[in-house]
Design a binder for these strands. Structure first.
Lengths: 180, 180
DNA sequence: CTTACCATGTAAGGCGTTACATGATTCA
DNA sequence: TGAATCATGTAACGCCTTACATGGTAAG
């Protein structure tokens, strides 16, 4: 349990409330989870097969508007596995920001180049912030009748993102100021 | 150049202003860069050898207070390589926060468990913030005579860390409030 | 009719961690 | 004298990305 492959639990988590195909999972990762997790098809499909072999998932084929899909559902064993992981303490939180690396070593290069990096970081942060705010508003607008327990947690992660990006933007402004 | 191994440039960057051993590099990573980059000995030592083979580094042995060390210095080719990388646009900034994963999927588990995760995230953030503030104060206290150009960039990364952790703490407070 | 997207997969290879192995020195 | 730290390395293995391969469908 200690060395759980993270993608395993990410997939199990996503499948807890809806049945999804590998393609769907990729989309979820690229939108809702994009700010703190990611994966490529090259890891998603093999992982789905592994999880099915371990009896954590069951698959079936579905003809969705003329398109064949392989849909996965979670088993009780899968839920148990996820639950157990959720109860374990967090092992590692990490941030790998190339931008920060370029800032740290900027003494070796032109300050103008650094400014460009920060400007593009600023732009990206603004875009991400906007997307997050839209998603947040959307979620808040769901009528209470349809609101489920997990919406609160989803909101919490978006608020994390919003606060984080606001911090980045604050830093960008101050950094840009100083570089001039 | 597009697919540069990041540890390569991290090491080259660190060696730009001082000669260091593999062990020293590990220490730098665990302190000054810890908030946005990391590496283990198992990757540092082989990378140093590779970089020397590629003529980006030169090593020599040094007897430092009865301890033998292998010290590395950067070559012109090494500086050029680093400089070139610094000028390339940032490819990828990423955050992999297990804590956020546990928040996102918290619906499957007990809310108390989530609270514990957030509390421990809060504690870690507080500690990190304190360390950063100490390092920042230390750096600000260096007499101007000894201050070099790169200090400013180093400061910038610490300010990034401070703003980021302050954001995390703000989020923690609000999240803890909501969970009660 | 062709571009984009839907949909699933495999193979090669890179990068990195953990665990192990070794041995010297410092400090309590 | 034993534990902690300094110091360097190797081997096994895991995880992931990229690139490739394939084929269907929707929309302009």
């Amino acid at each position: 349990m200690a060395n759980t492959k993270k993608l395993d639990v990410v997939i199990l988590g996503l499948l807890c409330h809806e049945e999804l195909s590998g393609y769907d999972i990729k989309q979820r990762l690229d939108t809702r989870l994009s700010m703190f997790w990611g994966a490529s098809f090259g890891s998603i499909y093999p992982t789905l097969k592994e999880l099915e072999e371990r009896k954590f998932l069951i698959s079936f084929e579905k003809e969705d508007q003329k398109r064949k899909k392989i849909i996965y559902t979670i088993t009780e064993a899968g839920r148990d596995y996820l639950k157990e992981w959720l109860e374990q303490p967090v092992e590692k939180d990490e941030l790998r920001y190339e931008t920060l690396l370029k800032v740290f070593f900027a003494g070796e290069s032109n300050t103008d180049v650094l400014l460009q990096h920060i400007l593009s970081f600023q732009k990206k942060s603004q875009q991400q912030l906007q997307i997050l705010k839209l998603m947040e508003a959307e979620l808040r607008n769901i009528p209470p009748t349809y609101k489920e327990k997990e919406h609160g947690f989803y909101l919490l992660t978006m608020e994390f993102g919003i606060i984080t990006y606001e911090g980045y933007l604050k830093w960008c402004e101050s950094a840009i100021e100083k570089l001039k």
